[in-house]
Design a protein around this nucleic acid. Structure first.
Length: 409
DNA sequence: CAGAATGATTAACT
DNA sequence: AGTTAATCATTCTG
């Protein structure tokens, strides 16, 4: 049937009608014969024959028919299964590169300005921004490599495509290649190159990830807080030893004072609590120190004179020590204080009422406020003078505001 | 340089 | 959500 169609078509295109149909058939037979035997001939001979065939008036028609047949058989089969969905992996990579600022619009000036601004603004974070600019430099290096590589690939792709297209066009003079087929081939080339591009994107992503982990993973580049910040945090911790769980607002305040973030404050308290609990003995000295400090500052601020007859500084220390005496458990110390094992040792008989007062005061102040001298514990006027003293009385806090005991294993 | 200290992360829990 | 406990990775210190 192909032959029939071919003949029919050829004669139609010839436009000569069917008068000398037999002669044409013979003609086509000759042509096909020449084509079939062309490989047996010498190169020169074949070249000449090829040229002759190319110039044959039947050639375009024959070519079209062959193209049509080819399309019907091979292309239709393969064409059906070519609807590929947009690659999710590629999209992910693209998104990441975009998010990391590797692909997408260049923002060189902007980032430099941002870095400068960060350096200018950050009082304590100057060295942080140095690292940041280092990170940026490396990132832009990656970005540059990525772009040049991408450009190279694109260029190579275009060159290769035009080369193949030229080749196919050239060949289409001697073998049946339809424009559609060329188009398809271009598509295949582009897919191949885009898969190479994907590898580039993948490795760029990996490089960025490594860079990130090297430079931005806080764990790797952690800095100790400055002394002042540690001081403030410790002050709060030891003056709230009974309940060292700062509220969200308290954390914000502390963060502001220490120039650290709220989550850093949370981290610090989490670490401090667990480490204190684990080895109270080790922190004894520190606890004493901060108790004394708190007492001292408070004494400066408030009424003087209570210092003389108060067990203040050593007392604070002794009280902290009492945690140890009670198997190191704050919660235990509560019991021991509430049950009067501790009362008789240092204070008068009316301690319970004072404790009650404190409980009241603390509930009013929320257990979070400026500190006053621990020495005022025993000063009656101290208790009446200011509700703020409550927070400094960490000795008694343990028996009054223990909203969440720190359990020991 | 070894070991302690320390800030951050993680899983499990409530 | 916020903690605890264990752990990691770095920095500090003797």
């Amino acid at each position: 049937s192909d032959t029939a169609r071919m003949t029919g078509k050829c004669s139609n295109m010839d436009g000569t009608g069917g008068a000398d149909g037999e002669g044409r058939k013979q003609d086509i037979g000759d042509i096909l014969q020449q084509i079939m035997t062309i490989t047996d001939q010498s190169l020169d001979e074949a070249q000449a024959r090829k040229h002759a065939l190319n110039c044959h008036r039947m050639k375009p028609a024959l070519f079209n028919v062959l193209c049509e047949i080819k399309e019907k058989t091979v292309l239709s089969i393969r064409g059906a299964q070519e609807e590929e969905p947009p690659d999710a992996q590629l999209m992910r990579l693209d998104n990441m590169l975009l998010a990391e600022g590797v692909s997408g619009p260049e923002k060189g000036g902007g980032s430099a300005a941002a870095a400068a601004a960060a350096a200018a603004a950050g009082g304590g974070g100057s060295d942080n921004s140095v690292e940041h600019s280092d990170y940026r430099a490396k990132l832009s290096q990656i970005r540059q490599i990525y772009h040049t590589e991408l450009e190279k690939y694109e260029q190579a792709c275009n060159e290769f495509t035009t080369h193949v297209m030229n080749l196919l066009r050239e060949q289409s003079r001697t073998r049946p290649i339809s424009p559609k087929e060329i188009e398809r081939m271009v598509g295949i080339i582009h897919r191949k190159f885009s898969s190479i591009q994907m590898q580039l994107k993948q490795s760029t992503c990996e490089a960025v990830m490594i860079l990130r982990s090297r430079f931005l993973d806080a764990r790797r580049k952690r800095r100790n807080f400055n002394k002042q910040a540690t001081e403030i945090l410790n002050e709060y911790f030891y003056s709230h030893l009974s309940n060292p769980y700062p509220s969200e607002e308290a954390k914000e305040e502390l963060g502001k004072k220490c120039s650290i973030t709220v989550s850093q404050v949370s981290n610090w308290f989490g670490n401090k609590r667990i480490r204190y609990k684990k080895n109270i003995g080790k922190f004894q000295e520190e606890a004493n120190m901060y108790a004394a400090k708190t007492a001292a500052t408070a004494t400066n601020v408030s009424t003087h004179g209570s210092q003389a007859n108060s067990p203040s500084t050593p007392n604070s220390a002794g009280s902290a020590g009492s945690f140890n005496m009670n198997s190191g458990d704050l919660f235990m110390s509560v019991q021991s204080l509430n049950g009067d094992s501790y009362q008789g040792a240092q204070v008068g008989a009316n301690i319970q009422s004072q404790v009650d007062t404190l409980r009241h005061v603390i509930s009013q102040t929320g257990g979070y406020s400026e500190s006053l001298a621990a020495s005022q514990i025993y000063s009656p006027q101290g208790i009446n003078v200011s509700p703020n003293l409550a927070s400094s009385l960490f000795v008694f806090c343990s028996c009054t505001c223990f909203s969440r005991p720190m359990p020991l294993a």
